[in-house]
């Protein structure tokens, strides 16, 4: 990861600030930076979203492709995740430099979003054992300013919300051979229910306290972080400790509580912005990268 190097005194300043609930940029321990969300930014995908959180900039594209269901789950479609840590974000990611981080994030996304009850996978099935929709969720990391996981999860949720999958019909003739017919009307499509799709909240332990939405500098001061996935109802669906340090059980429970609280607020804010954007209709002026 794009690591920053700090002097001991700078780190101390950050740690003491967290202690006093006044971070370097004036935020309290449970405040997020101002985030910008826009969906439908890449027109040749089934759904896409761009999220900017401070200097972290994420673009997610979802492509729906026809595939065969997995053997163990014949009546479900599935999600595939890929994270491209592009050299755009930092020269360190050039060539294969970003692969390790990309795989780590992709694995986390599998765990968080493919879990039971996140997306209704059954609705992605076209006919059992033969055809289903595979949603390729491709994450592109454009700029890296700390708190990647949270920003990526927000972008993935927004992109899934934006995803439109064409309706198909299965036609069966007398001999039993099946044919799939795509609907002629491009507006005739199914949308995913994202109500139960979780968001990730990363809590970084700094000194004796923990903060949400850490900047790169704060990440450099944190030895260990707890990553939790929270649904809009405040249910915790996934948890993971990251970083090289260790955490004691007591602080893990404290962090879980904070995470749930912050997670709920995060979902409310995200849903509000997604609805607001949708209410603007198709005539909305797209900002994208020209903004």
């Amino acid at each position: 990861m794009a690591a920053v190097c700090l002097s001991e005194a700078e780190k101390l300043y950050i740690v003491h600030g967290v202690q006093e609930d006044l971070r370097v940029d004036g935020r309290g321990c449970e405040d997020y930076r101002c985030a910008e969300v826009e969906t439908d930014v890449v027109s040749n995908t089934s759904g896409s979203a761009r999220v900017k959180l401070g200097h972290t900039d994420i673009l997610v594209g979802v492509k729906a492709e026809m595939g065969t269901p997995k053997l163990e789950k014949p009546d479900e479609g599935y999600l595939e995740f890929f994270v491209d840590c592009s050299a755009n974000a930092t020269p360190e990611f050039e060539g294969r430099g970003g692969e390790e981080l990309g795989t780590e994030i992709a694995n986390t996304l599998y765990r968080v979003f493919s879990s039971e009850g996140s997306v209704d996978l059954k609705s992605l099935c076209i006919n059992p054992r033969e055809h289903c929709w595979v949603l390729y969720v491709d994450v592109l990391l454009l700029e890296c300013g700390g708190n990647l996981f949270d920003a990526i999860s927000i972008a993935v949720k927004a992109a899934l919300f934006n995803t439109r999958i064409p309706k198909v019909r299965v036609l069966e003739d007398e001999e039993g051979s099946k044919e799939i017919e795509l609907s002629d009307d491009p507006y005739d499509c199914i949308r995913l229910n994202v109500d139960d799709v979780p968001c990730i909240v990363t809590l970084s332990k700094i000194g004796y306290r923990h903060v949400v939405d850490a900047t790169l500098q704060e990440e450099a001061c944190s030895l260990a972080s707890l990553l939790i996935a929270v649904t809009s109802k405040g249910a915790l669906t996934c948890m993971k400790k990251i970083g090289k340090g260790s955490l004691d059980p007591e602080s893990i429970f404290e962090m879980m509580e904070t995470g749930k609280r912050v997670g709920k607020a995060l979902h409310i804010a995200l849903q509000k912005i997604l609805d607001e954007e949708e209410s603007l209709g198709t005539t909305r002026q797209k900002v994208g990268f020209l903004g």
Partner: peptide, 13 residues
């Protein structure tokens, strides 16, 4: 108190 602020990007004037 958790504060989360999100917004739509606005086109540059």
């Amino acid at each position: 108190m958790a504060a989360v602020a999100m917004r739509l990007p606005v086109a540059r004037k």
